[in-house]
């Protein structure tokens, strides 16, 4: 048990903020995985007699304009949201991490070339790029993921490059080179552990952003195909009927708020635990 207390998970469990964050994330993940089991209704079943129903024992979060159960749709939508967020952030993060370390530690010309590349991509507004790509590519989750990867990996690259650059001339890197360490050894054994802290917090804080991008693209009608349960689609429906039935919008926003809080708190807790200098306890 004493060994466990010093592992990353052990230290996270000792941090109330991290426990709170992980509880929220666990709730979202479990409800997404078990959506079919938990859902009280078929998320696609239309019941026109019960259109715009208020929250009740039958419909926990009411129904939408087609009489579909909002709660069941949000559970299904959680799958899409988590799938898109985790996939897109992993791909973008990995690309950004590698390119950022190369830019920071590699030769000057490579740094300049990669920076130019990063800045060009970052100069594009996400939504405009999303609209442009959506016009070229088939509508679906793949497009959403590609849009998110293209618009966000430069951010990881920038952060990782800055971190790497500040380490490049650190004495312990010079000491490693003086000990005969190779380029790869220095980058993966010494630079990588130093940049992982800021990287993870950025990734964790970007997860909810990606979920909102997916929601936003679905809201604009360029995300998931019509009829697919998604948080963004529910928000859009709620927006259309906000004057008469505000609870569709309110319940559609609830999982988004939970996901944002959970991942942001987890990111902060991870940062505190991954950097040994910020650890409060040993």
């Amino acid at each position: 048990m004493s060994a466990f207390r010093h592992t990353l998970m052990g230290r996270l469990l000792a941090d109330p903020l991290a426990v709170f964050a992980m509880a929220i994330i666990a709730l979202l993940v479990v409800s997404a995985l078990l959506a079919d089991v938990i859902a009280p209704h078929d998320p696609s079943a239309m019941n026109l007699a019960d259109r715009f129903a208020s929250p009740s024992a039958t419909y926990w979060m009411g129904t939408d304009n087609l009489g579909r159960d909002t709660f069941s749709r949000l559970l299904q939508g959680g799958r899409i949201a988590l799938y898109v967020a985790l996939t897109a952030v992993s791909i973008a993060g990995l690309i950004g991490l590698i390119l950022g370390m190369l830019a920071g530690f590699g030769p000057r010309w490579l740094d300049n070339a990669l920076l130019f590349f990063f800045d060009t991509l970052r100069a594009y507004p996400t939504i405009i790029l999303a609209l442009a790509l959506a016009a070229l590519m088939p509508r679906g989750l793949g497009t959403v993921i590609i849009v998110v990867v293209i618009t966000s990996f430069a951010e990881y690259g920038r952060v990782v490059r800055t971190q790497t650059l500040s380490l490049k001339n650190a004495e312990f890197i010079l000491a490693e080179r003086a000990m005969g360490a190779s380029f790869a050894r220095i980058v993966f054994h010494h630079i990588l552990p130093n940049v992982l802290g800021p990287f993870f917090i950025l990734a964790a804080m970007n997860l909810p952003v990606v979920i909102t991008i997916e929601a936003g693209m679905s809201f604009l009608g360029i995300g998931v195909p019509p009829g697919t349960p998604s948080w963004g689609a529910t928000l859009k429906d709620g927006f259309d009927y906000i004057r008469t039935t505000p609870w569709i919008l309110l319940s559609g926003g609830l999982p988004l708020i939970l996901a944002t809080l959970g991942f942001t708190f987890l990111g902060e807790a991870l940062r505190d635990q991954l950097d040994p200098r910020l650890r409060k306890t040993r």
């Binding site: 650190a170 004495e171 312990f172 000990m179 360490a181 130093n194």
Partner: peptide, 19 residues
Amino acid sequence: RGQEISVVFQDPMTSLNPV
């Protein structure tokens, strides 16, 4: 480097990897 020649640096605060 390392096998035949090796260095002890000036500032012990910065010559070890902090993480």
